[in-house]
């Protein structure tokens, strides 16, 4: 089994990854116009203000779309096939790509299904995975 690809953690994104390591999902909030976003950037994508702060997400969101891999493009994922990569929109607005831990190879997923944060660790990296919530959960 090959090593997983690693995210590039730098000064800009470190609060995000450290937040996950502490079990919290953070997003950036623009103090000038109120826009919320992920991933980390130096300026607000709406008003370009550099005046942003990190805020904790509620951990609640919904599924926008998803895909299921039946071919591994990296050896590290061979044992996981078929696996999902799911696009989730947090209730606060930001979107992120993730895995749904109880997706059953994608069979349990549906558009607009409610999901809830379930931080999991791969090696020394904490990841923002999700579980199905509410009516979507079994």
């Amino acid at each position: 089994m090959s090593d997983l690809p690693r995210p590039q953690i730098d000064d800009r994104s470190r609060p995000y990854w450290e937040g996950l390591a502490a079990g919290r999902l953070l997003f950036q909030h623009c103090r000038a116009c109120g826009r919320n976003w992920l991933p980390a950037r130096d300026a607000c994508p709406s008003c370009l203000s550099p005046d942003a702060e990190w805020r904790p997400a509620s951990g609640n969101g919904r599924i926008v779309s998803w895909v299921v891999y039946h071919v591994a493009y990296h050896d590290a994922f061979k044992d996981r096939l078929p696996y999902d990569v799911t696009l989730v929109e947090l209730d606060e607005g930001p979107r992120l790509l993730t895995n749904i831990v109880d997706s059953r190879g994608g069979k349990a997923l549906s558009v607009d299904a409610r999901v809830r944060l379930a931080v999991q660790t791969e090696g020394d990296i904490a990841l923002a995975r999700f579980t199905l919530a509410g009516d979507a959960a079994r």
């Binding site: 997983l4 690809p5 995210p7 891999y69 696996y83 696009l87 790509l97």
Partner: peptide, 17 residues
């Protein structure tokens, strides 16, 4: 950075759409 979730390939972006 999403490669750690298994996000690979050009095809996957189109699959999401």
């Amino acid at each position: 950075d999403e490669a750690i979730y298994g996000w690979y390939s050009v095809a996957a972006g189109y699959a999401m759409i």
